[in-house]
Structure formats: structure tokens, C-alpha cells
């Protein structure tokens, strides 16, 4: 919560903004990973649960699913970047009116 500390140097020479950015990155990757686990589980794992092990078909499916999910992430990211300005507008619409100081 660096914003509660103003610009005073943190104890022990810790740059709070740097920490905050690293935490945001960590949380983003974790969220992404969790969604990948969940999506690929829905796509590849049979819900009969007759045995505790991944069978051959499920294993191969998982490998392809991870690769495809990563490709989709890249494609969507490129799209969002190319839309740049439009996205910024969407962000403002989303918080429309109620966050202007």
C-alpha cells in the first residue's frame, strides 16, 4: 500500500513501488495459470473419474491445450495493443462518471 506512505523512504531501503509492481506481475501470472488449469481441465479431463491417473488421450490433450491457450493469450494481447486508444476509452466507460475527481 505504497500510497499510504507518501514519498517517505521505506525502512530498510525498500522501494515500495518496485515491490508493488512485482506483486502485480506475480498475481497476474498466477491468475493466468489458474485459468489455464481450469480451462484445460474442462476441455481434456473426463468427469467419470473411473481411475486416478491421466490416460494417454488426456495427457496429449493437456499438452496441446496449454500450447493453444498460450497462443490465444498472445493473439488477444496483440489485439488489445492494436486497439490501444479504443481500449482506454472502454476503460473510462467502465468506470464511467463515478471515478472522476
Amino acid at each position: 500500500m505504497s500510497f499510504l506512505r507518501g514519498n517517505a523512504p521505506a525502512p530498510g531501503g525498500v522501494n515500495a513501488d518496485k515491490i508493488e509492481m512485482a506483486v502485480t506481475e506475480l498475481d497476474t501470472v498466477t491468475d493466468f495459470f489458474n485459468r489455464m488449469v481450469s480451462s484445460c481441465h474442462a476441455k481434456c479431463i473426463s468427469t467419470r473419474y473411473a481411475e486416478p491417473d491421466l490416460n494417454k488421450g488426456e495427457s496429449v490433450c493437456i499438452d496441446r491445450c496449454v500450447a493453444k491457450f498460450n497462443e490465444v493469450q498472445k493473439k488477444v494481447g496483440e489485439k488489445l495493443q492494436s486497439r490501444g486508444a479504443a481500449n482506454a476509452a472502454a476503460g473510462n466507460a467502465a468506470t464511467g462518471g463515478f471515478t472522476s475527481l
Binding site: 502485480t24 496441446r64 493453444k68 494481447g77
Partner: peptide
């Protein structure tokens, strides 16, 4: 706003992947 953007990004990836990708006989899109 940055967190909302990141959330929308991963949300979009998940939603569009779930709707559009149903063939896992290949790893390429």
C-alpha cells in the same frame, strides 16, 4: 484501472478460448 485491465485481459483469453477452441488434435490454432 490497471488491475481492471489485466483482469479483463485474462477474462477475455479464458472466455474466447473456451468458446472458440474445441479441437485438440493439433496444438496450433
Amino acid at each position: 484501472q490497471m488491475q481492471d485491465f489485466l483482469r479483463m485481459y485474462s477474462n477475455l483469453v479464458e472466455k474466447c478460448f473456451n468458446t472458440c477452441c474445441n479441437d485438440f488434435t493439433s496444438k496450433a490454432l
